[in-house]
């Protein structure tokens, strides 16, 4: 088992005819993901790389039984694309798009929460279950199948962490990039719950960063509920306050969202926190040893 994705996942790509949509569709297919359909309004009826393209998600679901959406629609239409996926009754939507206005995401978040669909992102690298299925833009080759679940607000920093895990022989059950925006679908706790219940996941590595209070909330949840060892890294110990560090959500405001506070809370809640980004894999190894 794994969480969110496995070899049976059937994927529809929203925005498949765009440049990055098409590129990453090919990459995911090469990895072994089962891409069954694409959606681009007005382009329904054509085939692209042998994949049938539909005008709407609901049509794509009707003809291909797709259950997972990968969204590459540019910001002006991205919130609508997420709602369309929700409306079509999919199990999971992974929204890669960066730059969606917050005003668009507030109602989307409420709709998605009330639905049965899980949303990952936006502004995220996606989800991968190594050896089975990749829905996102991460490099597949750095991952190996295994027992560590990875959950992260970052993109390339997640690749760094995964590579360190792989180099130490710690394979991954599923890696989830939850996204760097202030409003996202599944948060740390949602994903930790899934890992906690997944028999194939034996430990979790968590990557957080400055801004907001999601890491602190996760820390408290871990202390109360988590049955498996958790290691973590928090980026931005040296970040100056009041500056937006690349991600829309990565900002220290009013003295809140500091890396040091997150690290302290996580440590107090029993999480093994890596002090350096060069030692993320080792921190995970240490946490796993401590558990045995």
């Amino acid at each position: 088992m794994s969480i969110l994705l496995d070899r049976h996942s059937k994927i529809v790509v929203q925005g498949i005819t765009g440049r990055s949509g098409l590129f990453h569709t090919q990459q995911c297919r090469e990895y072994g993901s089962n891409i069954v359909a694409g959606v681009t309004p007005g382009r329904g009826g054509i085939h692209i790389e042998g994949i049938p393209v539909f005008n709407t998600v609901i049509e794509a679901v009707k003809y291909t039984e797709a259950n997972v959406a990968m969204i590459f629609v540019p910001p002006p239409g991205a919130a609508d694309a997420i709602l369309e996926a929700t409306d079509a009754g999919l199990d999971l939507a992974v929204c890669i798009t960066e730059g969606i206005p917050v005003r668009d995401m507030v109602p989307v978040k409420k709709m998605v929460t009330a639905s049965t669909m899980k949303l990952i992102g936006p502004n995220c690298p996606g989800v991968i279950t190594p050896g089975q299925c990749k829905v996102g833009i991460m490099p597949g080759h750095i991952h190996i199948p295994g027992k560590i679940g990875v959950v992260s607000r970052s993109g390339t920093l997640t690749y760094e962490a995964v590579k360190q895990l792989t180099d130490l022989g710690l394979g991954q059950s599923t890696c989830v990039g939850i996204g760097g925006d202030p409003i996202i679908g599944l948060n740390f706790i949602d994903v930790l719950k899934l890992f906690n219940d997944d028999p194939e996941t034996e430990g979790v590595f968590m990557i957080g960063e400055i801004g907001g209070g999601a890491e602190e909330a996760a820390a408290h949840w871990i202390r109360e509920n988590m049955k498996k060892p958790v290691a973590a890294f928090i980026a931005g110990v040296t970040a100056p306050p009041g500056k937006r560090m690349g991600h829309a959500g990565a900002i220290i405001t009013g003295g809140k969202g500091k890396a040091a506070d997150k690290i302290r809370t996580l440590s107090e809640c029993g999480v093994t926190v890596s002090k350096s980004p060069t030692k993320m894999g080792e921190a995970m190894l240490e946490a796993m040893k401590g558990a045995n």
């Binding site: 970052s154 993109g155 990557i207 040296t238 560090m245 690349g246 990565a250 350096s276 980004p277």
Partner: peptide, 15 residues
């Protein structure tokens, strides 16, 4: 490349 990695890079340089 990437905001999280960029932040981590500053952290590691200081370290």
């Amino acid at each position: 490349n990437g905001a999280g990695l960029a932040m981590a890079t500053l952290d590691v340089l200081k370290e």
